[in-house]
C-alpha cells in the first residue's frame, strides 16, 4: 500500500492534519464552539472558490478566508464566543457568495470543470502532490506547536473563564488566537476531507474522548489519538475497498468511535446519575 507515492503523501499529510484537528477539536468541543467550526467549513468553500475564480492558488483563498472569518466571528461575539444566530446569518450569506463564485468560475472556464466544487466540498486527499503534502504537513505541525504553547492558559480560560480572567489570563485574546488556530485547522482539514466534512474530524474524536475520560489532558491526547487512528484506518479501508471514497471511510471510522464511546459509557453513567436524581 505504501509503495504508491500518493498513499505516502496522504498518510504523511493526513496524520499531521488529523493530529491538529484532534487537539484543536478537543478545545472546540470543550468551549461549545462546534457551530463555529461548521461555519468555518462553509467559509472554506467560499474562500477556495473565490481563489479559483480569481485564478490564484486555492490554498491562499482557503487560509485567508478561514483565519479572517474566525477572528471576525470571535471579535463580534461577546468574550470571544460568537452567538449562534449571528454565526448562522453570516455563514448562510457567505455560502450564497460561494455559489456566486462557483458560477463565475464555471463560466470563466467554459463550464468544463464541474468537479471543482465537489473536490473542495468533499476533499481529495489522494490528489495531494508531494509539494502540497509537504506544505500541508508543515502548517499542521505549526498549528500543533502553537496550540500546545497556549494549551495551559486556554484550558484554564475554557473551564472557568471568570476565575481565569481574575488571575490575569488574557481571556479575550486567547479566544481570538484560538479561533485563528481553528481557522487554520479548518483550512488544513479542507484539503484532506473537504469543507463539509471537516466538522466530523473536529467534533467526533473530541466528543468521544470527553465521554471516555473526565481528565482534561488525558482527554486532549485521547482525542488526538482517536483522530489520527480514524485517519489511518480510514485511509487503509478506502485503499482496500476502492468503492469507498477516503473522506467517507475516515469520517465513518471517527463516527464509529464516537458511537462506541456512547455505548461504552452509557450503563456506567446511568448508574452514577440515578442516585443523584
Amino acid at each position: 500500500m505504501l509503495s504508491h507515492p500518493f498513499m505516502d503523501y496522504a498518510f504523511v499529510a493526513g496524520s499531521l492534519i488529523a493530529l491538529a484537528t484532534g487537539l484543536v477539536g478537543y478545545f472546540v468541543v470543550l468551549r461549545g464552539q462546534v457551530f463555529t467550526g461548521d461555519a468555518l467549513g462553509h467559509v472554506a468553500f467560499t474562500g477556495s472558490l473565490a481563489a479559483l475564480a480569481l485564478g490564484v492558488d486555492l490554498r491562499i483563498g482557503l487560509f485567508v478566508s478561514c483565519i479572517l472569518v474566525g477572528v471576525v466571528m470571535g471579535a463580534l461575539g461577546r468574550r470571544g464566543l460568537a452567538d449562534d444566530v449571528v454565526i448562522g446569518n453570516v455563514f448562510a450569506w457567505i455560502l450564497g457568495l460561494g455559489v456566486l463564485f462557483l458560477t463565475f468560475y464555471a463560466t470563466s472556464r467554459g463550464g468544463s470543470n464541474g468537479t471543482a466544487s465537489v473536490q473542495v466540498l468533499f476533499g481529495s486527499i489522494y490528489g495531494l502532490s508531494r509539494a502540497q503534502a509537504a506544505v500541508a504537513a508543515g502548517i499542521a505541525g505549526g498549528t500543533i506547536v502553537a496550540l500546545l504553547a497556549i494549551a495551559r492558559p486556554l484550558l484554564f480560560a475554557s473551564l472557568d473563564e471568570a476565575v481565569a480572567a481574575a488571575r490575569g489570563v488574557p481571556v479575550r485574546l486567547l479566544g481570538l488566537g484560538f479561533l485563528a488556530l481553528v481557522g487554520l485547522t479548518a483550512g488544513e482539514a479542507t484539503q484532506a476531507v473537504g469543507a463539509l466534512l471537516l466538522l466530523g474530524l473536529v467534533a467526533a474524536p473530541a466528543g468521544a474522548a470527553q465521554r471516555l475520560t473526565d481528565r482534561p489532558w488525558q482527554a486532549m491526547w485521547l482525542s488526538a489519538v482517536l483522530s489520527v487512528l480514524s485517519m489511518w484506518v480510514g485511509l487503509t479501508l478506502s485503499y482496500a475497498v476502492s468503492d469507498l471514497p477516503p473522506s467517507f471511510s475516515i469520517l465513518a471510522v471517527a463516527t464509529a468511535c464516537y458511537a462506541l464511546s456512547w455505548a461504552w459509557t452509557a450503563p456506567g453513567r446511568r448508574a452514577v446519575r440515578a442516585p443523584a436524581a
Binding site: 468541543v29 470543550l30 468551549r31 461549545g32 464552539q33 462546534v34 457551530f35 467550526g37 461548521d38 468533499f122 476531507v193 473537504g194 463539509l196 466534512l197 471537516l198 466538522l199 466530523g200 474530524l201 473536529v202 467534533a203 467526533a204 473530541a206 466528543g207 470527553q210 465521554r211 469507498l244 471514497p245 473522506s247 467517507f248 475516515i250 469520517l251 465513518a252 471517527a254 463516527t255 464516537y258
Partner: peptide
C-alpha cells in the same frame, strides 16, 4: 452538557454528508 450536544450534532452532520459523498 451543551458541549456534548454540539459534538453530537456536529458528528451527525459530518457523517451524513460523508454518506452523501459515498
Amino acid at each position: 452538557s451543551r458541549s456534548v450536544e454540539t459534538a453530537v450534532i456536529g458528528t451527525v452532520q459530518a457523517f451524513a454528508l460523508a454518506a452523501g459523498i459515498l
